[in-house]
């Protein structure tokens, strides 16, 4: 049966050295949909992304990618060995052939035009992220997979980058699967949030997830509070010392996050 999803992953588990890294996770990304994976360090976000891309072996479950879908991948970290002389232009060109006009417009859109003749060893971390995004876009992808696209980018730059990602989705209609540390900045640019901590804690629209007791438990009341402030509407109460009590916390049995 043909699936309408770009990615349709069912019950994925990955184990390494006898330890479960991700456990029974379902994940779908539809065309034109932005799905964000959030979770604390060590939650298995990168592993899940790699499993979906076929870069990690599954211990159980299945992943189906829509046949013929072109994937643009932006890995979490990419440092080029200094033994290798490489300009930004050459690095981007390795992704595949693109006509010159199109290449120019993508480079301009992502903002790497000024550094295109620099050595890849001389650009900053934030510039590298943009270069990686440009490289992924030049493949004309049906699906963008971005692993922490905003790392090494300052706060203003982060908001700008997420804005750019959602503009790219509008423009191209591609699906996006991205990993992020904080719900804050991705909130407005995402359709669905998966909150991961080895297993799936909660899934849903960002607003719904931010209210989910599991989310609050996982990230702590401070984070949840700042998120609520960011949105300027409170769905919870505060204790005297400023801690957040989610409104329904008392009638929800939070599960164990061992």
């Amino acid at each position: 049966m043909a699936s309408d999803y770009l990615i349709d992953a069912k019950g994925i588990s990955v184990r390494a050295d006898g330890r479960s890294i991700i456990d029974n996770v379902d994940l779908t990304v539809a065309e034109g949909e932005i799905v964000t994976l959030i979770g604390p360090n060590g939650a298995g976000k990168t592993t899940l992304v790699k499993a979906v891309l076929g870069l990690r072996n599954l211990s159980s479950g299945s992943v189906s990618i829509k046949p013929g879908a072109v994937i643009g991948y932006m890995p979490q970290r990419l440092s080029v060995d200094t033994n290798l002389p490489l300009t930004v232009r050459r690095f981007i060109g390795l992704a595949g052939k693109a006509e010159k006009g199109k290449r120019q417009s993508v480079l301009e859109e992502v903002g790497v035009l000024p550094i295109v003749d620099s050595s890849i060893h001389d650009i900053s971390g934030g510039e590298m992220q943009r270069v990686l995004l440009a490289r992924a876009l030049l493949r004309d992808p049906d699906l963008l997979v971005l692993d922490e696209p905003a790392q090494a980018v300052d706060v203003n730059g982060q908001a700008e980058l997420y804005h750019l990602i959602s503009a790219i989705r509008e423009e191209r209609g591609c699906g996006v699967l991205m990993v992020s540390h904080d719900l804050h900045l991705v909130m407005s640019a995402t359709d669905k949030v998966l909150c991961l901590n080895n297993h799936l804690c909660c899934v849903g629209h960002p607003e719904a997830v931010s209210q989910d007791p599991n989310y609050v438990e996982l990230f702590g009341p401070q984070v949840a509070e700042s998120l609520a402030l960011y949105h300027h509407h409170h769905d919870h109460e505060h204790t005297v010392d400023g801690h957040v009590i989610p409104r329904h916390a008392q009638d929800h049995e939070g599960h164990d996050h061992g």
Partner: peptide, 17 residues
Amino acid sequence: WRPLLSITIHEDLARAE
């Protein structure tokens, strides 16, 4: 040459592509 260079730069990225 080209695929080997891509793998040399980042193996996972090359595989994903």
